[in-house]
């Protein structure tokens, strides 16, 4: 199974991919998680890959090979579309963050992206930021989205919760568990 996590640097995509990675090793799968560090983290497009199965070779996901794309931002979801497998699923946080070329007026933010995505793919969109705030922290957007992802896989809920507990710092655990549940129950 190939899961691609996309967003804007600083949104917490890295932690989401690590939690997912820890969830699936717990189930005995071979797994590779590919991360992004350094310059591209500074507010740029970021993309991490989580691949698991009997045996995983390449850590990256090619065009047309992602079973699920978990998108933290609408434009980044659209950018990732070519990577979605035919019949694959997209889970999209409906937050919009203007990239610098849009801010400076050099480009415009495409309109009606969610509708355009829904025309070619199976899309679930949600206001993960509002749910994260409801859980107690805007920073928990990543775990809300993982909750939605969890509901869309066959992986038992307990495995996810164990991985959240094992990955998140103890003082943020309660907020994150709430965030996970809000995402999980929504889907």
């Amino acid at each position: 199974m190939n899961v691609m996590i996309v967003g804007v640097g600083g949104q917490g995509t890295l932690l989401a991919s690590r939690i997912l990675g820890n969830t699936v090793i717990d189930l005995g799968y071979d797994v590779k998680v590919s991360e992004v560090h350094g310059m591209s983290q500074r507010g740029g497009s970021v993309c991490t890959y989580v691949k698991f199965g009997e045996k995983v070779y390449s850590p990256i996901i090619d065009e047309g090979e992602a079973d699920i794309i978990l998108a933290f931002e609408v434009l980044e979801a659209y950018r990732a579309l070519p990577f979605l497998k035919k019949g694959g699923k997209m889970i999209v946080n409906d937050q919009k963050i203007n990239p610098m070329p849009v801010i400076t007026g050099a480009a415009t933010y495409p309109e009606n992206i969610l509708e355009k995505l829904a025309a070619v793919a199976d899309v679930t969109s949600l206001d993960a930021l509002a749910l994260a705030e409801k859980a107690g922290s805007a920073k928990a957007v990543n775990v809300v989205l993982l909750g939605v992802l969890a509901k869309n896989t066959d992986i038992p809920k307990e495995a996810w919760l164990r991985a959240v507990e094992g990955t998140v710092p103890p003082k943020f655990l309660e907020v994150n568990l709430r965030a996970f549940s809000l995402g999980y129950e929504l889907a």
């Binding site: 740029g44 990577f83 035919k86 990239p99 610098m100 070329p101 355009k116 793919a121």
Partner: peptide, 16 residues
């Protein structure tokens, strides 16, 4: 592999 493409050119998101 078969895949869909966005209908338009997308604005880049460089790091800032």
């Amino acid at each position: 592999r078969e895949h869909a493409l966005p209908e338009e050119a997308l604005p880049a998101r460089p790091p800032v």
